[in-house]
Each structure stands twice: as C-alpha cells, then as structure tokens.
Amino acid sequence: MHVIYGGTFDPIHHGHLRLAIELKERLGVSEVSLVPCHIPPHRGSTDASSAQRLDLLRLAVADEPGLVVDDRELARSGASYTADTLRQLREQLGEHEPLVMVVGTDAFAGFDRWREWEKIPQLAHVVVVKRPGPALEPLGVPAKLLQERGVSSADQLHSAPGGYCLELDPPLLDISATGIRERILSGRSPRYLLPDPVWQEIRRLGLYGACPDENF
C-alpha cells in the first residue's frame, strides 16, 4: 500500500513528522511519502519557494527511513491539484495497488470544492485525520462521503486499490507552521518545534525573516 501525505510544509516541523510516523504505524506500511505542494490552489503563496521547502523537507527526513520525499508536484507547472497527483501515481503503481491520500478534517471540510473531487475516491482511499476545530457539516458532501464510504479498520484499505474513507484520531503535536513563521519573524527561537538541521538551514538562507547572525 502506497501512502501520500501532502502539504505546503512551510516549513516542515515536528508536528508534520510525528503525524507521518503515526500514519506509518497505524496504516501498517513501511513508508509514508511526504509530497510538498508546488503552488497551493487553495491558499496564498508560500513564504519559502518550492525548492527551498523541498530542501528543508529532505533535511528533516534524512535520518528516518520510514519517511520519504516525493517531489512530483514540483516537477509540474501550475497549481498542484490532488487529482492530478493521484492520477499520475495510479498510472505508476498500476490499477490494483492500494493507494492512500491523507487529509486533515479542516481541509476535508472543503473537499467538494477541490478540482475533480468526485474522481479522487476512484483513484485512492482517503484517510481523514481528525484535527481540533468544528465538526464536519452533517449534511455536507464530505460528511456524506465518510458515511457512505467509511470503514473502521486500516486493514480494509489493504484489500482494495481505493474507494474507502477512514477517520483516524492520532495524538497531534500542537505546532503550526504559521506560528513558527511568526516566531522567527519576531526574533524568537523556534528550536525544538522543528528539526535542528531545518532550523540551521532556515538561518543560513535567512528564510521567514531569520537573521543568520543571531545566536539562538
């Protein structure tokens, strides 16, 4: 089973990494692929370039063999649409290999506004990670998808190439990329919120308003 966990990762931090490990263990796979978005279609531009975010992500997972980086969205021009990524992966994996995409409840709440959203369950399983915040609108399309396609066990995802939805409620670290960017911009240290090699590279490049000369 192939599992992808996408995002802007602006920057990658321990919350992202811990969730990826939880996914690997709970879904019973040997690897989780982190897929950095090139141009996010549902938010403004990122603070770091796609190439810089990719480099930070590679630094973050360098010592963890269970986490790998998939840069396919950076190789495509234009906005990064999930359906395009899944279609490309399906062609690569074949029609029988189980394929899983991971999304948080906050993003899944707008699932029916994604481009070609109806085709996504045909291409892959959808794992919805519960996040703090409002519940899904009971009569909305995302909630109906969970009801109609929902399964109770990760084992069921291994039995089909796609089409199922699974909700997971793993422990989440209360860390946000927005908070890290704000902390760096205000001259405060983000250390222990993200891997040290990532923080060192952010300082070296002066990303997010970091001052390379500061000694945190």
Rank of each mutant, 00 (worst) to 15 (best):
L166D: 12
A60Y: 11
L146V: 09
I175C: 06
H96Q: 14
R115D: 02
R181N: 05
R72Y: 03
F111D: 01
G150V: 07
V61N: 01
P121I: 01
G162F: 09
R90F: 06
V68S: 13
E118Y: 02
Y164A: 15
G110N: 09
R76T: 09
D112T: 09
Q147F: 02
A124Q: 03
H125Y: 10
R76C: 10
L56M: 15
T105P: 02
H96E: 15
D106Q: 03
L166K: 08
S159L: 15
E137M: 00
P142C: 12
L145I: 07
K130C: 01
L145A: 10
S176D: 00
L59K: 11
R90V: 09
L173H: 01
P132W: 01
E97Q: 14
L146I: 11
G162C: 09
P132H: 06
E97F: 03
L74R: 08
A107I: 09
P171E: 12
S77W: 01
V69F: 10
P142R: 09
V126M: 14
F108N: 02
R115K: 14
V68N: 05
A160N: 01
K130V: 14
G140L: 11
A60R: 07
Q156L: 15
A177H: 03
L172N: 00
R183S: 12
D155H: 07
G163V: 06
I184C: 10
G163Y: 13
G104Q: 10
V69S: 07
R58T: 03
L74E: 06
P132I: 08
V103Q: 02
T178D: 13
D174C: 07
G150S: 12
G78M: 11
G140M: 10
Q122G: 11
M101W: 14
S152V: 06
R90P: 07
E64I: 14
